[in-house]
Amino acid sequence: MKINLSNKSQLQASYFPLSSNWRSMIAKDWAKHWPLYLMLLPTVLYYLIWGYGPMYGIIIAFKEFTPRKGILGSPWAGFKYFQEFFTSPFAFRLIRNTVMINFWNLVFAFPLPIIFALLLNEVKNTFYKRTVQTITYMPYFVSLVVVCGIIVDFTASDGVLGELTKMLGGAPKNLLSDPKYFRTIYVVSELWQRLGWDSIIFLAALTGINPELYDAAIVDGAGKFKQVIYVTIPGIMPTIAILLILRVGSLMSLGFEKVILLYNPLIYETADVISSYVYRKGIVESNFSFATAVGLFNSVVNFILVILANKISAKMTEVSLW
């Protein structure tokens, strides 16, 4: 078919129907919202400079990086370091352990601070309430080395738990030398240290609920329990949903510090995670490229998870990250 040249402009307009709309939309948007955009400017600048300025560092994962040659000057290595990780006989076990610990942590250490906050919310005595809050948030500040030291002592064969087993007529054993207890120990200690701290944000969200809603519920004849279900929880739902999305998006990341303070070769089966493996490898030979490649793999998985979680949440609760 021949194109009639006289109709060129018309053609363009029909080929790019959005183009002019788009421009006018931006102009309109700017005209209407420029004070708001001005307020957003510091945030945007922050992310552009400190977030996206150094982001080219990601390519270290695909390079044979040596500090002297720099990031751009080092020779390319392709997927060599990804291959190196995935061909390790332990790759599957490392990924499984990382995900499982995070999963159980999500199942227990996520909802319990919410429940704790709800229980605390029911306390009418302000002094008691504040005291409980202050005390429970303290363990968060105790350094990991000390907390893990206490855990190792507690779980030893002659530790508190061992003595307890003996009193109950069992044979005491060292819990950290049996792979099947590691995840429990990890999650429980995490809860122990973070219950109060993690509940703070929910306590704050609870104060934002309009008291008139409770009055209305009471008028409708709702008991305490129903008030919680129909007023309190919906009131803090946006916070819960967003934090849950963020949690799901970190299923592949688990810091090595706590793991290496608690584990030993006997329980590598459940305790050795991606980061502790990279750490052990780094002791022998520090390799930026390998560490970056593994980190990048984790990030990609996490990123996909967060997108999925966000989609689901947007459908179910109408709360969404973007």
């Binding site: 708001l36 996206y52 982001m55 270290i60």
Partner: peptide
Amino acid sequence: VLSRKGLYWNKVVMGLIIFYMYFQGGLIP
């Protein structure tokens, strides 16, 4: 600002922020 509805660029900025949460350049850069 990011919580206001109807701002054209908000989605883009949120996208940049979330992406940065997961992908960072590392220590040297």
